[in-house]
Design a protein around this nucleic acid. Structure first.
Lengths: 354, 354
DNA sequence: CTGTTAGCGCTTTCAT
DNA sequence: ATGAAAGCGCTAACAG
C-alpha cells in the first residue's frame, strides 16, 4: 500500500462541524423523544401525521442531516453500492458507469467506483474492501476468477449482479448482451449484402464473448451454406493493436475478405488505421461492420455501421435487477440478455453482381 | 427521487453475516480487553510489541474485519473520498477518474463517483450527499456556481481540492492545466511552421479555459507582430457539433486559414468530419493541431499533433494535494499549474515558401 | 401513537 | 502496558 507522509495535524476545523445538529437536538426542539423523532423522520413506524410534519419542519430548520455511521451501525445499510469494472475506456463500461451512477443517485444510493483492470487479484481485494464498507449491493463485470468471493458476498447478504460478463464459476444473476445473436445478425447483414468472404476479428476464445460471437458468425455462415475459412478468423485481446495485426493479416491474404466484421470493440481503432494506411476505401473496397456502438463511430467518415450491444439498456436493467435484489428478491441465478440492434450507417455496401 | 417497488423483503441471508467476528471476539480469543485489542490492531496507543503481534495473528486467523460504521462513528473518518466530475466522456475527466481511483485505493481510500453534468443543481445536491457520507476529502471539477457550498465543506473539516476548473467564487486549492501557455505554445508551433492565418476553435469566453486559451493564442500572434482576424476565432460549447459549425465557417472564408488550432477538445470529432467531407487533406491542405490528448488521436491517420494538457499529471497532483490536506495541511487557496507538452505527430506541416 | 431503554462495534479517556 | 467504562448518533424492541 502506497504510503503518505502525515503532517503533524495542524489545528484545523474539526471534522465534526461544531454543533452538528443531531437527532437529539431535533427531538428536544420539537419536544418529543428521539424515538419519535426518528420514526417521524424516517417515515417508518407510526407517527401522527401532524408530528411527522412538524418534525420534518424542525429538522429542516435546524439543518439536521442524519449521521450515516450511526444509522448504518443499526441498519447495516450504507446506501452505497459498489461498481467494479475493468476500465473506463471501453465504451460499454463507460456508459455503464454513467448510467449506474446517475440512476443510483436518483434512487438514493451513491456508488463506489472500482477499476479492476480485469485482474483477479485486484478484483479480490476490492471485493473485500467493498464488503468492509458494507455496500448494499454490487454490480460487477467479473474477471471470472473470483466466483467464490462473489458468492461470499451473497452469503453475507450483499446482492451481487454481474453485467457484460458472467462468472462461470458462480451461479449469479447476470445481465449480458445477446452476443451470439449479435454476431449472427451482423454476419447475416454482410451476407445479405452479397459478401461471401467475411473476415472476423473477435475476442479470444477463452472469453465468453469471444466464444459466443464466433458461434454467431459460424452459425450464419452455416445457414448460408458457406464453408468456414479459418484464415478469415482472427482472435485477439481487447486492445487496438489486435486490430492492426488482424487487419494486416486478413488483407494480405491471397484472396482477401470483401468485408470485415470487427467484433472486438477495442480493435476498431487499429483496423481503421490499417485501412487508412493501405489506402483502402471504405466501403468501396472493403465493407466494415463494428460491434458495440460508441459516439465516434458516428462521427467517423464514412460513418461506421455497427451492431449495437445495448450498453445503456444493460446498465438500466442491471440497476433494476439489483434494486429488486436489495428489495428482497432471491438470487435466481438467472441470466438476462439484452438484444442487439443493427445500426446501418455508411461503412457497408452491397457487393456488385451478387 | 426515483422510487422503486419494495418487495415484502423475503427472508434472505442476514446482512450481518452470521457471526461476523468483532473486536470483542478477537479480544476474547487473545485473552485481552477490547481496548488492548483496538490499540494493538490500529497501531495507535501503546501496546507491547508482543501483544501486538499476537493480536494481529489472532485477528487474521479469525478473519476479523473492522466495522466501518462503528469506527467512523468514533473517528469521523470514512476512508471515502468524493470525486465530482462533469462526465466520463471527456478524455481528461476519464483519465482523472481512473488515476484518482487507482491511487486512492492504494492509499487506503475508496472513491465515490459523482457525475454532475456541469449542472450547478446536481453539484449542490451531490455535495450535500457526499458530506452526509462523511467523505474524508473531495476532488471536484467545479461548475463554478457553488463556491459557498464548497467552502462549507472546508469549514466542516472536509478538505476540497478543485481540478481542471477553478471556482472563481471560492478561495480553494486548485490544480489546473497551464492553458494560457498551452495555447501560446500551440500557436507558436503553427507560427514557426510558417502559418499566418491560424483558425482557433475554443471554448466559450465565459469559461476560464476558453478565456485563457484565447489569451495564449492572442499573445502568440501579437508577439509575432501579426494582426488578429476575429473571423478566424470561433467560440463554442464543448461538444462535437461546435467543431462542425466552426470548421465549416472557417473553411468557407474567402481567405481560409492554412492551419486550425482546435483548442476545444470535444470539437475535434466534428472538425475531423468536416475536413473529411470537404475532401481536405491533412496536413497537405490544412494543418490541424488539437488540445488535450486522447488515445484515438494517435490512432487516427494522419496521427493528430496535440498540445497535451497533462490530465494524468493533474490527477496525480490533485491526489497529492488532497492527501496533504487530509494530513492536516491548511488550505492555502493556492493554485497549481501542470505544464502542457506539445506532441508532434503528423497533422501539421511547414508552409511552403515561408 | 409516543417515550424509555438497550445496544450496534469501536475508540478513547481514566484508572490501575 | 493493560482494563473498565463511557459514549459516538441512531434505530428498534418493549412498554405504556
Amino acid at each position: 500500500m502506497e504510503t503518505f507522509p502525515k503532517k503533524p495535524a495542524k489545528p484545523r476545523a474539526e471534522k465534526t462541524r461544531v454543533g452538528a445538529v443531531t437527532l437529539r437536538d431535533v427531538a428536544r426542539v420539537a419536544n418529543v423523544s428521539v424515538a419519535t423523532a426518528s420514526r417521524a423522520l424516517t417515515g417508518t413506524g407510526l407517527a401522527s401525521a401532524e408530528t411527522q410534519k412538524r418534525l420534518i419542519q424542525v429538522a429542516a430548520d435546524l439543518g439536521y442531516r442524519p449521521n450515516t455511521f450511526a444509522r448504518g451501525l443499526k441498519t447495516k445499510s450504507s446506501k452505497l453500492i459498489g461498481l467494479a469494472i475493468h476500465n473506463l475506456e471501453n465504451a460499454s463500461f463507460r456508459v455503464l458507469a454513467e448510467v449506474v451512477q446517475t440512476r443510483m443517485r436518483a434512487l438514493g444510493y451513491e456508488v463506489i467506483l472500482s477499476i479492476t483492470s480485469d485482474d483477479p487479484g485486484q478484483e479480490r481485494s476490492t471485493l473485500a474492501t467493498l464488503a468492509d464498507h458494507s455496500i448494499d449491493g454490487l454490480i460487477v463485470v467479473p474477471t471470472g476468477a473470483n466466483g467464490p468471493q462473489l458468492l461470499g458476498l451473497e452469503n453475507a447478504g450483499i446482492p451481487v449482479v454481474c453485467v457484460v460478463r458472467r462468472d462461470e464459476g458462480a451461479l449469479l444473476e447476470s445481465v449480458l448482451a445477446a452476443d451470439p445473436e449479435g454476431a449472427y445478425a451482423g454476419t447475416r447483414h454482410l451476407l445479405a449484402l452479397g459478401h461471401r468472404r467475411i473476415g472476423l476479428i473477435v475476442g479470444r476464445e477463452d472469453t465468453t464473448s469471444g466464444k459466443e460471437r464466433l458461434a454467431g458468425y459460424l452459425r450464419a455462415l452455416h445457414e448460408a451454406g458457406l464453408p468456414v475459412d479459418r484464415a478469415l478468423i482472427h482472435h485477439g485481446r481487447y486492445v487496438p493493436e489486435t486490430g492492426v495485426t488482424a487487419a494486416n493479416a486478413l488483407l494480405a491474404l491471397k484472396e482477401p475478405p470483401t468485408a470485415l466484421f470487427v467484433a472486438n470493440h477495442e480493435s476498431s481503432l487499429g483496423v481503421l488505421r490499417v485501412v487508412s494506411e493501405r489506402g483502402i476505401s471504405v466501403p468501396d473496397d472493403l465493407s466494415l461492420l463494428c460491434y458495440e456502438d460508441t459516439p465516434w463511430f458516428e462521427w467517423q467518415r464514412p460513418a461506421l455501421s455497427v451492431v449495437d450491444s445495448g450498453a445503456s439498456e444493460m446498465a438500466n436493467l442491471v440497476v433494476d435487477r439489483l434494486m429488486q435484489r436489495i428489495g428482497g428478491a432471491a438470487n435466481g441465478g438467472r441470466e438476462y440478455r439484452v438484444g442487439v440492434r443493427l445500426i446501418e450507417r455508411a461503412s457497408c455496401r452491397a457487393l456488385e453482381g451478387r
